[in-house]
Computed example of a mutant assay.
Amino acid sequence: MPLANTAIVTGAAQGIGRATAERLAADGLHVACADIQDTERTVKSIEAAGGSAEGVTLDIRSARDWSSAVDGLLERHGPIGYLANVAGVVNMISEDSVVGLTEEAWDHVIDTDLKGPWLGMRAVIPGMIDNGGGRIVNISSLAALRGLPNLASYSAAKGGVAALTRQAAFEYADRNILVNAIAPGTIDTPILGDITPEMKQANANSHLIRRLGRPEEIASMVAYFFREGSFLTGLTYAVDGGWSAKGNF
């Protein structure tokens, strides 16, 4: 049975989320562009290119928002075949070391970067089971695989995403639901907007391919997992310009 043609992409207002929404629409899916921010630019870009999309206001930390979003999509378009959990934050509230973290900062990052993907999977998996299957991709991070400075809460959250991905893959593989994660290196997105050119270059130099990644390069891996990766589940795949292959930093 073919999968349903509707995909949810969180964080679709900008960066990796926007690139993913645009790529999936170009591949023929109807894309629900979900974000706490306005996704009108993403939707218009997709429609201008001949694709099908709609904006969905969604705070991924809210179970109520997830329920409302999924129920609305089911009513308008039928079953949901795909979920890309892209939305995430870094700690901008406090220092992000084990000692320097505040509870407020910890809760904000964990609620967004780990609880959010869990709520998303919880919202869509029952319908995927009823419809004969689905594909889910969660965005983890290289910080889940390597120790990196001043990223304690972020590393914990993204490590949790990788672990949750493996567990969900195990739990639902026999229901034709494949669940994978991507661990990006440093990607040139608006989240880097406030750093200096020197810091950007230092991040670029961390990769064997000595540049920053592009959002569309992560989007292409999401598309691969969704459309081609029919014998892949439970992976956390590094799309990191070779960073994880280095013996040192």
Score class of each variant (00 low, 15 high):
73 L>D: 00
240 D>Y: 06
149 P>D: 13
80 I>F: 04
239 V>K: 02
243 W>F: 09
19 A>K: 10
112 T>V: 15
231 F>Y: 15
53 A>K: 04
63 A>E: 14
163 A>D: 01
204 A>T: 07
54 E>P: 00
249 F>M: 08
14 Q>C: 06
180 N>H: 08
183 A>H: 01
161 V>K: 01
237 Y>E: 04
148 L>V: 15
8 I>F: 02
248 N>E: 14
26 A>Y: 04
211 R>M: 14
68 S>E: 13
1 M>P: 00
243 W>I: 01
181 A>E: 08
202 A>T: 14
41 R>M: 15
112 T>Y: 06
91 N>I: 13
54 E>N: 01
93 I>A: 02
53 A>W: 13
169 A>W: 09
64 R>H: 10
234 G>L: 06
12 A>N: 05
60 I>W: 10
75 E>A: 14
43 V>A: 12
89 V>Y: 09
54 E>C: 09
219 A>G: 06
224 Y>S: 08
69 A>R: 02
117 P>I: 12
196 T>I: 13
197 P>G: 01
161 V>S: 00
5 N>V: 11
50 G>C: 09
69 A>V: 09
134 G>E: 09
82 Y>E: 01
175 R>Q: 12
151 L>C: 11
106 W>H: 00
227 R>C: 02
125 I>A: 00
107 D>E: 12
10 T>K: 05
135 R>Y: 06
152 A>T: 15
141 S>I: 13
41 R>C: 08
54 E>W: 09
126 P>M: 07
214 R>A: 14
198 E>T: 13
166 R>S: 12
89 V>M: 10
200 K>I: 12
185 G>H: 01
99 V>T: 08
133 G>D: 10
167 Q>R: 04
12 A>G: 04
110 I>D: 02
